[in-house]
Design a protein around this nucleic acid. Structure first.
Lengths: 247, 247
DNA sequence: CGCACTGTTGAAAACATTCAACAACGGTGG
DNA sequence: CCACCGTTGTTGAATGTTTTCAACAGTGCG
């Protein structure tokens, strides 16, 4: 619970490599997805000014499940992991948020998930009151909120399919393919593909155990579909072929 | 795909019993959840008048995954099943919509899920253009849309946890407990608890096979936690006890 | 009455987890 | 600087759960 320790330092370096330059907000328009990408330039600038950019260390908790949703967030740099925990030992990661993604922009009373950084990150934060006031003057921004939350919902539905209807091998393959596509859309180098999250994180995202994740990755490697590197993976088949390679 | 056949007639009778009187819209305020419950009386009346009430038979498709989202919907009576299908044989049901629940009120371009009735239903439908126009005059209604989609997202997150982190027995127990609570909130008689959906539907909702659903229900019955009736289930332990009964 | 379907149960097989051990790695403290 | 230590990652073997394949009962319908 209070375990906010850093992962091994080596990982941090890997993550810094995986998340190289701090991209200024103005270039955020590269990404077609994410809450901020849905705002026009002027609104984005003004809204950005109302909040603050907070540098965060590795494994820092941004907010906890059940806590009052007093602020909302957007990732500027790094990766934020959203998860839902029950009984302290079962965790389901609902998504990995990347730069441009808004966190809890549609939240009502309380946070329904927890958020924690994976490696160092830069996060934009704003008081919910300020956010609400900004939006109240610009009704059309609410459209962006709707679109953003609707996109989150679609992503959740896709993940529900993976969780319920895919065998481990296919879960991993889809995960790698989707992750690669998301990073590529942000203009990142995906060859090799950085995997800043731990095996446990991947397991908790896919509804598997750490061991199964390891074994399945090894199996994909033996099959020649991927190459496992420390903190990274090289996809040897294109995303489509990767999925095909396992049924 | 074109299989839109009715389920066995006996089930239909059961469903009519499970979904007894056509509740007029004015009484929809009983439910604290759902899109329509978030509107005030006047707005609800006016909006309702802009769409139409369409009676639907059993297993009718309201809209299909991938189709343009030309209309949005709300369930007035009956149960609508939202699902996501891949390759024609793997289906993941994302949710069972009950009276008051809005369908695709936050949709953008295309439907990301399919919707089909379970048993006879009464559905309110409106062209997306009309809906958008109505909302554009009443910015605060967009808040209701945000709240509604955010609630769907929370529900999806809960379901993701069930799919990824619960064994079959617990999946069934949670499902029964939640379903019972939802029906109770609508003022329905939940003793015995109507189960209008087929075993296959339950399986596709929980990420299991039909056989596992049967076996697990039988196991819960042997344990004295439930009593299985045709088309219904009697919960012998309260929801809390039911969950506790399986770990 | 037969047919098609849903629901149920059994047995075998496949899959993922659990338990266990160990390697690799970086950080810390001597 | 190096050895120790905790963590993460990896692999093996046994276990347990779920699926698959199969058979059969019940039901409504033509």
């Amino acid at each position: 619970m209070t375990r906010e320790r850093c992962r091994a330092g080596g990982d941090m370096k890997q993550q810094m490599a995986a998340v190289p330059p701090l991209v200024p907000c103005a270039t955020a328009s590269i990404q077609p997805t994410g809450f901020f990408a849905r705002l026009n330039f002027a609104d984005r600038r003004q809204l950005m000014a109302l909040g603050e950019r907070v540098p965060r260390g590795a494994n820092e908790v941004l907010f906890a499940q059940g806590a009052p949703a007093a602020r909302c967030f957007s990732v500027i740099e790094g990766v934020v992991c959203l998860s839902r925990t029950v009984g302290d030992h079962r965790r389901q990661i609902t998504s990995f948020a990347l730069p441009g993604d808004g966190l809890e922009v549609g939240a009502q009373q309380r946070h329904e998930v927890s958020a924690a950084t994976i490696g160092p990150a830069l996060v934009w934060e704003i008081a919910r009151d300020s956010f609400a006031q900004f939006v109240s003057h610009r009704p059309y921004v609410l459209q962006a909120v709707v679109a953003s939350v609707a996109a989150d919902l679609t992503e959740a539905h896709e993940q529900m399919f993976s969780l319920g209807r895919r065998p481990a091998e296919e879960k991993l393959a889809t995960f790698l393919a989707v992750w690669s596509e998301r990073l590529a859309r942000l203009g990142r180098d995906v060859d090799p593909l950085p995997l800043p999250m731990s095996r446990k994180d991947i397991a908790d995202y896919l509804g598997l155990t750490v061991e199964t994740v390891c074994r399945t990755l090894a199996k994909l490697e033996r099959r020649g579909a991927i190459e496992i590197l420390p903190g990274k993976v090289r996809l040897l088949a294109d995303p489509a072929g990767l999925l095909q390679a396992c049924g």
